[in-house]
Design a protein around this nucleic acid. Sequence first.
DNA 1: GGCATATTATACCTTTCGGTTGAATAATAA
DNA 2: TTATTATTCAACCGAAAGGTATAATATGCC
Lengths: 109, 109
Amino acid sequence: MPSAAQLDDTMLALADPTRRAILKRLARGEARVTELAAPFDMTLNAVSKHIRVLERARLVNRRRDGREHILSFNPKPLDEAAVWIERQRNFWNARLDALERALREDDET
Amino acid sequence: MPSAAQLDDTMLALADPTRRAILKRLARGEARVTELAAPFDMTLNAVSKHIRVLERARLVNRRRDGREHILSFNPKPLDEAAVWIERQRNFWNARLDALERALREDDET
DNA sequence: GGCATATTATACCTTTCGGTTGAATAATAA
DNA sequence: TTATTATTCAACCGAAAGGTATAATATGCC
């Protein structure tokens, strides 16, 4: 059961194209900060901040190897977000099913 | 193929507990603005703004009936968000599978 | 030691967020 | 017509987002 605050953090982290791109990259394997920053037309500092947002959401873990910080992907919060989304979809579908049932009953009278 | 901007809007809309609660309510059926606002300890105006954010993300549709605005749930952007999340998870799992295969091959030598 | 490299910290700026209050608009009811 | 009800609009506020430039902190290398 993901807390509301955890979902807030996760969704917020996903609500930015730079951060989604970083995650995409990390889903394929670890990387250092500089490597992650390379594709982007912004300061290393800005990317560093984006990484911190991803860390706050626990989507990214940091390990230090000398002066290099090595980032890795943690899918767990993504799972929790997916569960929330799936649940709403289920409620929605259940409602449509009930509506359909009701219409069918109506037909039979 | 959801545009980056569409995903931005969707994720941002989901990154707030009030808006998630509103969506949850709407997944069970339409409601008016006042009805949606009732459970929350904030101004009707604030809720009205949250609804606008949900509309911008196309998660909510508005229909007018006299002076009442009737809001309904649109699951489409939720589907697109789920697809994005699922895709990252797949990349991640593929990577783990490859790692496992590599380890197994190593065993056989 | 001294210099280059990897990364964060701090301070600052502009825009957006989430909320408020108070006024405007539109539709219904008396 | 005059209230009352449903909703938005507009202005404002403090806090956070997303970016910059510059300084600080480690670590690695000669």
